[in-house]
Amino acid sequence: MMENIVNMTPWHWLSIAVVMLVIEMMVGTVYMLWISFAAAVTAALLWVFGFGWEMQILVFTVVSILSVIAWHKYDLTRDKTSTRPNLNKRGHQYIGRTFQLSHAIENGVGKINVDDSTWKVRGNDAPVDTKVKVTGIEGTELIVEIIGA
């Protein structure tokens, strides 16, 4: 085992970097990315300077620790608020928009066409083609109010 560590080449370190990247893709924690980065840096420095196994381990360890700490500090300071908070909340994207009823609202329930889909709406009774504004959402039903009423 020790013989394998003593004879590490840049290709070994690049292989470690690739393995770490694959693990990162499966886990998705971001930290393995920086350990992979450290292995790639170690490979590059080993290729340029050709130092012994002790220095390789030291470089890998130091670069790993520094890059993970740097990422962690950056991650704490960055703004994590989304510029598109309703991206995965499809119905919430329609709040404030106006549409025409495709099916009359009868007994408080009707339908509107939104892009390529039909949404069930709740609101005051109104005939087909009445303009309505989406004011909220409950479950999969849009809450609407009649415009001009």
Rank of each mutant, 00 (worst) to 15 (best):
M2R: 08
E3T: 11
N4C: 09
V6E: 10
M8K: 01
W11H: 01
L14V: 07
L14K: 10
L14E: 05
S15N: 12
I16Q: 07
V19R: 02
V22C: 11
M25T: 13
M26L: 13
G28F: 12
V30Y: 15
L33P: 00
L33T: 14
W34K: 10
A39F: 15
T42H: 09
T42W: 09
T42M: 08
A43P: 03
A43E: 03
A44N: 04
F51Y: 14
F51M: 07
G52T: 07
M55C: 00
M55K: 02
V59G: 06
V63I: 14
V68Y: 05
A70Q: 14
W71G: 02
K73L: 14
Y74N: 04
Y74P: 00
D75Y: 08
L76E: 11
T77D: 10
T77C: 07
D79W: 00
D79R: 06
T83M: 05
R84L: 15
L87I: 12
R90L: 06
Q93F: 08
Y94D: 10
T98K: 10
F99V: 03
Q100G: 03
N107R: 07
G110W: 12
G110M: 11
S117P: 01
W119K: 07
K120E: 14
V121C: 11
R122W: 01
G123L: 14
G123S: 15
N124M: 06
A126V: 01
T130D: 07
V132K: 03
G136H: 05
E138W: 00
T140N: 15
L142W: 09
I143M: 15
V144L: 06
E145P: 00
E145Y: 02
I146Q: 04
